[in-house]
Amino acid sequence: MEQTILIIDDDAKLQDLLTEYLENSGFKVASLLNGQEALSNVRNVAPSLIILDVMLPGKDGLEVLRDIRTESTVPIIMLTARGDDADRIVGLELGADDYLSKPFNPRELLARIKAILRRFDNSTTKVSSHQIECAGIALEASRQILIIDNEQITLSPTETKLMAELMRQPNHEFSRDDLMTKVWGREFNAYDRSIDVHISKLRNILKPYNEHAHRIRTVWGKGYMFLSD
């Protein structure tokens, strides 16, 4: 089945370049030059993945991201200005799955797209054809749902994959390299905050539940682990 990529960017030349490149790579492409109609397009187009620029006229990319996340867990790659760490971190905190700094090589974007879609497919098939349970927490990755005390919490595709990796091997010390390879499909970069921001989001989800607030532990100098007790 042909997968659709929705590009939301006010740079028409970049849109044309990416559209041609992605179509030649086997994707169907839809595009918008602003964020005003983003949510309605997500509903109508039902994209497999969204490429979303932060610097949009009118409603900026972070506002658009916030709107989309109120009703969709579609994977999203944010495009940010080089060196703008604040936008990257806020974007990840709001639910973006990955980010790429402009200017970038279209081949790198394509690699990120394929890695995320592969991760998303895995989270709904072999990784999660069954429910993962550990320490009174259940993860239904096919539905991207975390169940704690009979409450259901919706996760993003990346949060789902990260939580699945941690829960499937409780008390195992995962290095940042391990998690970056398993979850993001690329090598860890010391300047990349993706892992730390998503771990922080998962901790905030667990925090209201006193019995589980401690589950994700930092292994200093290495990475993280999920505690079973």
Rank of each mutant, 00 (worst) to 15 (best):
D87P: 02
I132Y: 07
I145W: 11
S142A: 15
R66A: 15
R119N: 08
D178S: 11
L162T: 00
A115K: 13
E108N: 11
L62P: 04
L202C: 13
L146H: 02
E133S: 14
D60L: 00
H198P: 00
D85Y: 15
G95Y: 00
R82W: 15
D98V: 12
Q131I: 13
A135Y: 00
D85S: 13
L117A: 10
R193P: 09
P157C: 11
L62R: 02
E63C: 14
D87V: 05
D196N: 12
N171C: 01
L162P: 02
V197N: 03
P157H: 01
D84A: 04
S156E: 08
S175F: 05
K126R: 10
R143I: 13
E71I: 09
P170R: 03
D121S: 05
T73S: 14
E173Q: 11
I76V: 15
T73Y: 04
E159D: 13
R203L: 07
S194F: 00
E108D: 14
T154A: 11
F104L: 13
G95P: 09
L179I: 14
Y191K: 11
L79H: 03
V90E: 13
T80V: 08
W184P: 00
L79V: 07
P75W: 11
R118M: 09
L110N: 09
D87C: 12
I76Y: 05
I195N: 00
